[in-house]
């Protein structure tokens, strides 16, 4: 046990997203949907009931034309590294969502989830979506479902997993290749897709990794740091107005 209240390995998978490069094109989100068998409905315009693991928030600087500026903030699950528990794993009554202390990924077991939605209430990032309907696909499109990620059933919560099936594959490959599985690296679908390469992914505890370096960049910040949720998703921006939107402030 470390002082953080849980056994800590030397792997903490995390992400850095450069908001100055992000154009809000949605490639990350679309790639995520394809990779993770995310269901869709004919009408997706009600964003409060639209399942999205990688939601793209539009930020603006609240100024008038022509000083008005927008920016985009892609929001995966933050995989909070708060001491003892993430906000969501703390409250799940059935241990359906837990944090894998080997790598810091917050997982969610769909067949165990009872759909109480307490985790959604606990999460300030709205990173979790609920299956309000039975997920259905137009018939031919069931052919494009990936066997690596199980489709969900209605009445359960789902969210970004940092594509941990890809991580398992990378580890398995390392094991077969005779290299250290703990040094296995991979990219989630969103990071692979990003056309401006704004998303960097890796082990935050590996000093030499790009993600570790960027997370210590002077431009780096996290969303809602004041709440001590300790997200493992960092953002980069040079622009003050964007940085100021990361956390509430009294001024």
């Amino acid at each position: 046990m470390s002082e953080k209240g849980h056994a800590q390995s030397n792997i903490r998978l995390g992400m850095v997203i450069d908001l100055d490069k992000c154009t809000g094109c949605g490639a990350c989100s679309a790639a995520c949907q394809a990779e993770n068998n995310i269901s869709f409905r004919p009408d997706e315009s009600n964003k409060l009931r639209s399942i999205s693991w990688m939601y793209i928030y539009q930020l603006d600087n609240k100024k008038d034309y022509p000083d008005y500026k927008i920016a985009y903030l892609p929001r995966p699950c933050m995989h909070c590294d708060a001491d003892h528990h993430s906000p969501c794993t703390f409250v799940c009554p059935v241990n359906a969502t837990t944090r894998d202390e080997n790598n810091g990924i917050v997982t969610h077991i769909y067949p165990r989830c009872i759909g109480c939605r307490y985790c959604m209430v606990a999460c300030p990032y709205h990173a979790r979506s609920f299956n309000w309907w039975d997920p259905t696909w137009p018939k031919p499109m069931t052919s494009m479902l990936s066997p690596e990620v199980s489709p969900r059933m209605r009445g359960v919560v789902e969210k970004c997993t940092f594509c941990h099936h890809r991580y398992n594959k990378a580890r398995a490959k390392a094991y077969v290749d005779g290299t250290d599985p703990n040094k296995a690296t991979y990219n989630p679908a969103c990071a692979d897709a990003c056309p401006t390469k704004a998303i960097t992914f890796g082990n935050l505890l590996d000093e030499k990794s790009e993600v570790a370096k960027l997370s210590k960049d002077p431009r780096a910040f996290r969303v809602l740091e004041k709440l001590q949720t300790k997200p493992k998703v960092y953002y980069l921006s040079k622009q003050d107005w964007i940085r100021n939107l990361a956390d509430n402030s009294l001024t």
Partner: peptide, 8 residues
């Protein structure tokens, strides 16, 4: 599958 930490 009780989670002893959960208030629920």
């Amino acid at each position: 599958h009780a989670n002893v930490h959960s208030m629920l």
